[in-house]
Nucleic acid binder design. Structure first.
Lengths: 229, 229
DNA sequence: TCACAATAGAGAGCACTGCTCTCGCAAACC
DNA sequence: GGTTTGCGAGAGCAGTGCTCTCTATTGTGA
């Protein structure tokens, strides 16, 4: 993140961005499967072998795009959460909508991160943190709603056994929020992306497509489900 | 589905199956992206151009595999539902488990049908019916549970507007089941596959992975959510 | 039964891919 | 100013999907 010093370093950073931009452009028009390094190099007016000075392989380029996509989506969600809302339910719903809007506007990038993993799947370690941004936003809403006393006390059973241990990890990030609530948050999280994947990947055709109303109603129901009164 | 007559027709049907079997084998080892017609033809001891007598393109082969995968998964779900259960909740949970088990045992085929759609996405019309088998199984459980009086009467609001129309389509297949219940079924359906996709695609690493307990508890909660008392 | 038509596989070839290697040129550093 | 480092060009390899032509085999109607 430090500013590049020499002309060479600056040129390198710029070209790296240009390559990613061209890749993203090509992605929008034809999907990840047919993303071609040679086509990118042609678009940039350079020879294909030169591209390997910037990305050691096609998979590395894709991994870079994946991280960027996670961050762009996370940023959209965080931006939506930063607004002022009269009730945490509205914040919850706004984040849902922001996630869906970004996904619909960048469906190929969405497919890149939430679709089938690419063949030589890269070390996911670099992607773990950016991938956590959306669930963290939802968790923060819950945490804040708890602090402000907005949460209902359903008498849902507390998780036990190994599940309790797993939920405990989340609890460290949202102190005070009941465990059953964090468990339900995880369930809602998987539901959110399942629903968006179904919409984007054509699984809703013939039933809930177009999905606007289905999505809106579901985000309301899920807010209630996790305990936002 | 009629029995092949001539020797040529029989040979054709057999070779078609062998090609799909080889493709499936190759799929398991390296994923859909790197599925190669030439590698398949090599494995079968024929020249690659001969393969085009059976499948006009790579995408057509993939489409055939997709349909087979939908049917295999649907069959697994139906088989689980056919058992006798003392309570519809158990049937619901068994179907959830069957879907997950099949998906874990055939993760590349799962990715083929629930991951990102392939580039030149084939006319989905042929896939619509086999794809509907799993949700239909869940719907039948709900329908039967309703007939036997197992369903709770939550005072959930009925869907309105366009959402009501979409739910009406489902209602035609499950007469008597309240609309809010069918809506929740759709939500549970997206949750189920969102959860499985997250597990198989590595999205749960660092939180709910391994997902056995999370999955089991979620299937219980979702049964309650759709109104199975 | 036999000629004709339909079908299957072989082989060569085209345009494309990711990736490697070597070779010069230019910028950065001491 | 000389040396090291980084960068782009170009050729080349092994692989891909797919098309076309040619030949052999199988099925069928007169």
């Amino acid at each position: 993140m430090s500013a590049p010093r020499t002309a060479r370093e600056r040129a390198r950073a710029e070209l790296t961005d240009e390559i990613k931009a061209a890749a993203r452009r090509q992605l929008e028009s034809s999907g990840a499967e047919s993303l071609s390094l040679r086509a990118i190099s042609r678009e940039l007016g350079m020879v294909s072998s030169a591209l390997y000075r910037y990305f050691p392989s096609r998979d590395e380029l894709l991994t870079a795009l994946i991280i960027d996509a996670y961050n762009a989506l996370g940023e959209a969600a965080e931006k939506a959460a930063q607004q002022e809302y009269p009730h945490p339910r509205e914040a919850w719903i706004a984040v849902y909508a922001a996630v869906r809007d970004w996904s619909r506007a960048n469906r190929h990038e969405y497919a890149l991160i939430y679709g089938s993993p690419i063949a030589g799947y890269q070390a996911p370690q670099d992607t773990v943190q950016p991938a956590a941004r959306v669930p963290l936003v939802l968790m923060r809403i819950l945490s804040q709603a708890h602090a402000e006393g907005w949460l209902t006390e359903l008498n849902a059973p507390e998780p036990t056994g190994r599940l309790a241990e797993q939920v405990d990890v989340l609890a460290g990030l949202a102190p005070g929020v009941p465990k059953w609530m964090l468990l339900r948050l995880a369930i809602a999280w998987t539901q959110l992306f399942g629903m968006i994947s179904f919409e984007l990947f054509g699984q809703l055709v013939g039933s809930m497509d177009p999905a606007d109303d289905f999505f809106a109603e579901t985000s309301r129901q899920m807010a209630a489900y996790v305990g936002i009164s």
